[in-house]
Amino acid sequence: MRTLEGHLAGVSTIAWSPDSNAIASGSDDKTIRLWHRATGKPYPAPLLGHHNYVYSLAFSPKGNMLASGSYDEAVFLWDLRARRQMRSLPAHSDPVGGVDFIRDGTLVCSCSTDGLIRVWDAATGQCLQTIVHEDNAPVTTARFSPNGRYILAFTLDSCIRLWDYVSGTCKKTYQGHINVKYALGGAFGVTGSDAFIASGSETGEIYFWDVKSKDIVQKVSGHQGPVMWVDTCPGQSGTLVSGGLDATVRIWVDVNEDEHDHANGITTGHENNTALQGFVDDNGGMVQVKIENGGYGDDARERMSVDVNGQETPAQYAEESIGGIEPEEMLG
């Protein structure tokens, strides 16, 4: 296990590059940093430009661009090779909760606590569609479906909605879990030939819905507090990972048929709250859990770490704590 250090304030989001060789992290210190996965070292220059906390990140499928959503209400598109800001999209009137790239990289979606989901043309930077639900509930996370036809949106009215972004209509609403306070996130998954949606709940369970019938197909519990994020392993293995406010990351495997049972691996080591996205490396069975320290008051001080050779990596920045923000503040 390796700790990546360099941010001056809490880290709210991380993202894997498509080739799994780099990790991007967005922080409350308003910067985005890129890291070598293999060495754990940061790339020299951080991405500077946001005026407020960076809250969400997404790599383009080719890995040449990065979209970032921030509390400054804008979405930035970055040229990663030059580490240059390509475009700034005047996206929302509230902090941007989530961003995502479509599978062919032509569209970016963003969502915000102002209740809007916007779809952007990545090439021209123009807004192509805005989706809004009548109730205008704050949208905390939005992501494209695996085939790019729909957008899955997590809202603070305890609903997850599947939108057809071309027509702007809601196709499915998934309910049953509780989500009124935190920015929860979930993912699409595949078992056999069927797709499911997995998401955490503030009651501590993980819920699984069938995409077509909207039925809850399974409900598993393991976390002690709200389950902040659930992510699935690419492919059809049905493996997923979850992280909760109880500072644990749990890996779930498909035991028999559709049964997701028993957390078989618990990763702890975070005394603080973790908001996180679990993830699995593309290449082969190696499971890597992407953990984000929620950064609620914790900072670089705690992150003295050891690099590959077991030597202590010198802390590059002053170890001063910049106050993090509680998720409740954002979503309140």
Partner: peptide
């Protein structure tokens, strides 16, 4: 919301 939805193909 009874449409048949395919998120994979």
């Amino acid at each position: 919301e009874d449409e048949d939805i395919d998120v994979l193909t």
